[in-house]
Design a binder for these strands. Structure first.
Lengths: 255, 255
DNA sequence: CGGTGCTTTGACATCGCTCAACGACGGTGG
DNA sequence: CCACCGTCGTTGAGCGATGTCAAAGCACCG
């Protein structure tokens, strides 16, 4: 399932279109953004805690994670990012990183300097709101994660994350039926969900046994969306996607 | 400890000054924001899940909470807001609320319409970045909460929240020595921390016994900042305050 | 064919939850 | 003024969900 994009900024335009409404002028401005592209190996820090950044990154291919490092080598993964996401927009207005940003898989990443972003903002003030909105949606994801960690048990937490990651990939055309890539290892999923990898493994077995979901070789397959969403108490409102499509019991194949 | 402000927008200016740098022109623009003021009773919803809003609110006095409601009457408090905070800025760019906003105590709240904000943004584009930054700091608070819920045990979680709430109030001049208001009831703190009120109560006893913190009648008193911060593994970076002041062992009295 | 890293499983420990009761306190009405 | 009541805080006993530790299985790869 390769990322189906022609140019980096077309990918960004597609992404922004899935959470906002992009006018033709805005779209053109996006497509004109100067950028550089780099391929980074898996498990490689992009920006580190404490650093100042003068550019923001756009994921073109692969998965990126945002994480906080605690003492004793413990780690909390704060969020996952996929093709089309700009995980580093906050550096536009916050001077120091308060966490790390790292690749999870081999990644293709585009970098846009803050100067370039400010230039486009000056010429197309509309875009400010659209990218601001993007960071607000990021915050909405955080809120949902807080709710999960605070009030759901392990099973619901895992189910909820799977629903979220499936729908986000679906909006970017990265799913195939009820399957989608899920490259993080179990220990990484555990670090995101506030669980140990041992317990996560047992939860995965439960999900498999109950015929809700299977996870194998980096491929997630949802066998029963309705039941999975019920276990997760999943409500897609927080995703703020323009296309509200929750998979029907018999979901449409994505184009 | 009454909120020491003369006018609503002076309070906002003071707040923004504590996390950014406000030029004189920006400051004047803030002071000129048209608004209305209302007093709301405690435990009163300001905006509800699913609603659309055409205004944003500014807390002038009292405490506000953002919360998600789950089935079975369960609730996760996502964050607390105090005088100077604008908890509702996201409604500028997100059409539907994905959670609730409610008063915790009796509150004085100022409301500014989105139209008015957009007007000021047009005349003072600087302010866009400053308010955007404010929402990004909100997100930084979420991240820290995720880390707490995911990777800290109850004791550290509680200690961390107390450190955060103390420093945020300190930046607004709402503390007195190492004491500050903490109006939420134990059940509300528990709902914010992913604990039951019973267990939170035991944790508070531990904190009291270990002479770190006492909480009594809505007043939080920190007895040993260094030790409390150590238990919490507290690092104030995520607050993104311009004045970095962490209380010394013998903290300066706030003016 | 022997690493190396990830997943899976078992046995046991522990943190935090549940249920239940009681105490402290303030408001209200007689 | 006092009895009553509701709310909040406090405590105990037992239980359940999740963590810890340790080992084995398994796939990939040199």
């Amino acid at each position: 399932m390769p990322t189906p994009y022609s140019t980096p900024m077309e990918l960004l335009a597609r992404k922004l279109d899935s959470c906002a409404r992009l006018s033709d002028a805005d779209r053109a401005a996006i497509l004109g953004l100067a950028h550089t592209v780099r391929v980074l190996p898996a498990r490689h820090d992009i920006v580190r805690f404490g650093e100042r950044s003068n550019q923001s990154c756009l994921v073109l291919q692969g998965w990126v994670s945002r994480y906080a490092a605690l003492s004793e080598g413990e780690r909390q993964i704060l969020s996952f990012y996929i093709a089309g996401d700009m995980p580093d927009l906050q550096s536009l207005h916050l001077d120091r990183m308060d966490h790390h940003l790292a690749t999870l898989t081999t990644c293709t990443i585009a970098f846009v300097t803050h100067d370039e972003l400010h230039r486009v903002f000056r010429q197309h003030p509309n875009l400010i709101g659209i990218l601001w909105r993007d960071t607000l949606i990021d915050a909405a994801h955080y809120r949902e994660r807080i709710t999960s960690l605070g009030r759901r048990q392990a099973l619901g937490r895992v189910a909820h994350l799977f629903c979220e990651l499936y729908l986000r990939q679906r909006a970017m055309g990265l799913t195939s039926g009820l399957s989608c890539p899920l490259p993080p290892k179990q220990s990484e999923l555990a670090d995101a969900l506030g669980l140990t990898s041992v317990h996560l493994n047992r939860v995965l077995r439960t999900l498999r046994t109950r015929r809700l979901v299977t996870l194998n070789g980096g491929l997630l397959t949802i066998e029963d969306w309705d039941e999975l969403a019920a276990v997760a108490e999943f409500d897609p409102t927080f995703l703020h996607q323009t296309v509200e499509g929750v998979p029907a019991s018999e979901p449409a194949e994505t184009v």
